[in-house]
Amino acid sequence: MARNSGFSGLITPVAITLWVGALWMTAITASVLFRTLPDRQLAGLVAGKLFTIVSIIGMVCGLWLLLQRLAADGLSAFKQSLFWVLLVMWVLVLVGEFGIQPLLAQLKASALPNDVMQSVFANRFRTWHGVASIAYLLECLLGLWLVIKYS
């Protein structure tokens, strides 16, 4: 990644650090919550809030980084692995936040007053939670690649 001077040159590494750091820290924190708190519903509620915050960070940082690449390199940005990794990460955030998370919330709401894992929706919830976990892991790994390759 070319080093730019000025505001954009400063913001780009900060945006990468904030996004990728938030991804990994939230994954670690969620794991700790589920291992530490005896109430899995409470752990899930707190983890869900953290994942929403990291999604917002990803949407903002990802959009900034994509626009910055396009502004700096024009159409040749489409020939860069950096651009495509950022785009895939950003799409994963959007799919997770606006596709998978609402589906999981609907399954939880449909199970009320029971816990979703004690309902007829448990298998669907597990499946979609697994899809969300794989997408999040992919986003984390792409972020790690981004940091290693462009730091």
Rank of each mutant, 00 (worst) to 15 (best):
residue 52 T to F: 14
residue 144 L to A: 15
residue 36 T to G: 03
residue 24 W to T: 03
residue 43 A to G: 11
residue 117 M to D: 06
residue 128 W to K: 11
residue 67 L to Y: 06
residue 77 A to I: 11
residue 62 G to Q: 07
residue 146 L to F: 07
residue 56 I to C: 07
residue 96 G to Y: 08
residue 81 S to N: 08
residue 145 W to H: 07
residue 140 C to L: 14
residue 6 G to A: 09
residue 94 L to S: 05
residue 25 M to F: 09
residue 103 L to P: 03
residue 84 W to S: 01
residue 90 W to S: 05
residue 65 L to F: 12
residue 55 S to R: 02
residue 22 A to H: 04
residue 95 V to W: 00
residue 9 G to F: 00
residue 81 S to V: 15
residue 10 L to V: 15
residue 137 L to V: 15
residue 66 L to N: 08
residue 50 L to S: 02
residue 133 S to C: 12
residue 70 L to A: 11
residue 14 V to D: 06
residue 150 Y to G: 02
residue 129 H to P: 05
residue 51 F to H: 07
residue 85 V to N: 02
residue 139 E to W: 08
residue 119 S to Q: 10
residue 71 A to Q: 11
residue 143 G to A: 09
residue 131 V to P: 08
residue 79 K to D: 10
residue 123 N to Y: 10
residue 54 V to W: 05
residue 98 F to M: 11
residue 85 V to F: 00
residue 50 L to P: 00
residue 25 M to Y: 00
residue 89 M to P: 00
residue 59 M to T: 08
residue 75 L to Q: 10
residue 131 V to G: 13
residue 116 V to G: 09
residue 42 L to H: 12
residue 96 G to L: 14
residue 143 G to Q: 07
residue 60 V to K: 11
residue 119 S to V: 09
residue 12 T to N: 13
residue 50 L to E: 01
residue 45 L to F: 13
residue 34 F to I: 03
residue 25 M to Q: 01
residue 31 S to N: 11
residue 87 L to A: 14
residue 58 G to A: 13
residue 49 K to Y: 14
residue 121 F to V: 01
residue 103 L to H: 14
residue 66 L to H: 04
residue 57 I to E: 00
residue 123 N to V: 10
residue 125 F to R: 10
residue 142 L to T: 06
residue 85 V to G: 04
residue 70 L to K: 11
residue 22 A to L: 13
residue 109 A to E: 08
residue 74 G to Q: 00
residue 51 F to V: 02
residue 110 S to T: 04
residue 82 L to G: 12
residue 20 V to R: 03
residue 49 K to M: 10
residue 32 V to S: 05
residue 49 K to R: 15
residue 85 V to K: 04
residue 2 A to W: 04
residue 97 E to K: 12
residue 8 S to A: 15
residue 7 F to I: 14
residue 47 A to W: 02
residue 28 I to C: 01
residue 22 A to N: 08
residue 94 L to Y: 04
residue 84 W to P: 04
residue 51 F to Q: 03
residue 129 H to A: 13
residue 146 L to D: 09
residue 97 E to W: 09
residue 35 R to M: 11
residue 132 A to Y: 13
residue 114 N to Q: 12
residue 36 T to V: 01
residue 77 A to Q: 07
residue 53 I to D: 03
residue 53 I to V: 10
residue 136 Y to S: 11
residue 78 F to S: 02
residue 67 L to Q: 04
residue 109 A to D: 09
residue 86 L to G: 07
residue 5 S to P: 07
residue 66 L to S: 03
residue 67 L to V: 07
residue 11 I to L: 15
residue 44 G to V: 05
